[in-house]
Write a protein that binds this DNA or RNA. Structure first.
Lengths: 335, 335
DNA sequence: TTGTAGGCGTTATCAT
DNA sequence: ATGATAACGCCTACAA
């Protein structure tokens, strides 16, 4: 069933059918009635492909993410906000998850281009020369979320990972801790990996504390890796830390589980501070002290930024940084 | 830039360009070289819309979900598996989240039809007459995930919610508990809501135990609702339960948090069993005893089912039920 | 108010 | 091996 057949059955031209479908011009009540009757009878649905081909816009936004999964990141929260906003503006969403495989990432960039999505929300993680080459003259508007790529001028919405981690560490120091361990994210992730670690380290520097070598270790975002990292850290031949800064709440929970199994009480025996404030954090035992980043807000900001770019509005603020907040709960104790 | 312009620059016909792009017929090395040169120089990308319009398939699968968000359900896990499988088969994904608004659900069904997606994976929640009307002669293959709709013959992949909840309750009973509370999901959800509750209730019936009235209460999937439900349940004028069956792990965590705040130790003072086995469950304090449903497997099964339908294979098993497993950890104690 | 016809960018068919 | 040309289904001048 297509517009031509509808026209034939309603005994009008296809233009008239198009007019009643899109309400784009006056149609006589008589013709309109006949057309609508056929429309209903045949359950006709216009073919978006044809329409979009001719209008040169697809009303579709591509979301490109490179997470292991929805569970180990908190990307889901951002996507909730994004889908809501974009939907209300008439956009649909095409989803691509590269699972950290660069090749797939480039592949999606290609597919999005061939599918002619109107814009892209790009939850990137790492960058290479190939990225630069591709993104440098990519024809579709992109807004990055969670990461920035300094070598190219692309609008972005990021978190203040550096100051967040620094604030967390300073808070721990202020509670009297001196031996403070750090469980971080992989360094290919320039935001959660590099910046948070830097924030942690700089907090010591500025506090004039000499945090000995050997207190840093790396996880991979998962709960399990937090558990393992804590285990590994505690098997090292160093004087035991009295507090742990952990780069994500998920890993912090893995960490606490390990400590608990070792008979250590958090926060009485050892303090732990996380990062993210995911939905479980407030309900964990103990409730997690953490740095809250507003993933939802990031999604909103990114959507709106992309939207105004698509509307060709003169956007002045193409680089936005979402704030953070220290949430004091019950996994940190002063000594 | 389009195929016509490429043809002009390479001094060949558009047919030839099409041939080298799709490798669909022999092309002289000479012509091929010229075309490829232009392809590279112009960074030409074929327009999928045009191709799909003419081929009558979009290589796109629509995923329709009706969750509040990615966090309160464990739908993310299924989607991970789905995206992997579909991607490897050359399909792309279009995502629609209705947020439990029926109208938006129908809207997405319409959009998916207009966008001509090849198939749909439908994470439904509730059903109405309108659903029946729309789905009855919907022209695109659908596979339902997590729910079935008995009034219409649609292939589905579901969990064994009934037996899972029954097994959980039986296990609790076997541990010597008699006063067992239940924190459930909303009943518009026929799977997690209705079936799990039924499993809980039938366990008593068959065990010949008279579980008094007043032990059931309803949450809404969120952690917070689990907390509140526990609070409400314990404020009732009934002899306190010694165990709680909670319909989702998220709610179970909310529940345990409340109990902990009341100075009750889980499992020493009261036992709690959950449902789902989400990623945090094993790392919660205490580690959660729960019914594991394999969301990933459900995603795999659903994808494969849809795939074979699309391939017009004669599929015999259009109704599949994914198994479950009782995971004994440390939130239940025998008395 | 209505209809005709060209074009959107491909692929597919049919000659050559 | 190559090229014309007719679809695919729609929108949009332009003409009537």
């Amino acid at each position: 069933m297509n517009i031509k057949e509808v026209a034939r059955r309603a005994n009008v031209s296809i233009s008239t059918v198009s007019r009643v479908i899109n309400n784009t011009a006056k149609v006589s009540p008589d013709a309109r009635a006949r057309v609508e009757k056929v429309l209903k009878e045949t359950k006709y649905r216009p073919n978006s492909l044809a329409r979009e081909l001719q209008q040169k816009r697809t009303n579709t936004i591509g979301i490109l993410m490179s997470a292991y999964d929805f569970d180990s990141s908190s990307i889901g929260k951002s996507i909730n906000a994004i889908t809501d906003i974009l939907k209300s503006e008439g956009y649909n969403i095409m989803l691509g998850n590269s699972r950290f495989h660069e090749d797939e990432e480039f592949e999606f960039l290609r597919v999005f281009q061939e599918k002619r999505v109107d814009g892209i929300l790009y939850f990137a993680s790492s960058f290479s020369d190939k990225h630069k080459e591709i993104l440098e003259d990519y024809p579709i508007p992109i807004v990055m979320v969670g990461q920035k790529y300094d070598e190219i001028d692309i609008p972005y919405v990021i978190y203040d990972d550096y100051n967040g981690a620094k604030t967390a560490t300073e808070y721990i120091i202020k509670q009297g801790h001196q031996k403070i361990g750090y469980i971080g994210c992989p360094l290919y992730d320039t935001a959660a990996g590099v910046m948070r670690k830097k924030g942690y380290e700089d907090a010591f520097r500025e506090a004039g504390i000499n945090n000995d070598i050997g207190y840093e270790i790396e996880g991979d975002f998962t709960l399990e890796s937090g558990y393992k990292a804590a285990k590994e850290l505690f098997s090292r031949n160093i004087s035991k830390p009295s507090a742990l800064v952990v780069a994500t709440d998920f890993m912090a929970m893995g960490t606490i589980r390990y400590l608990t199994e070792q008979g250590l009480n958090v926060p009485n025996d050892i303090s732990v501070i996380g990062f993210d404030d995911i939905n479980v954090s407030a309900y964990y035992n103990p409730p997690l002290t953490t740095i809250r980043t507003d993933k939802e807000d990031a999604g909103i900001q990114a959507s709106n930024l992309l939207l105004s770019i698509l509307r060709k509005e003169s956007v002045t603020k193409t680089h936005v940084t979402v704030g953070y907040e220290l949430i004091k709960r019950n996994s940190v104790k002063s000594i």
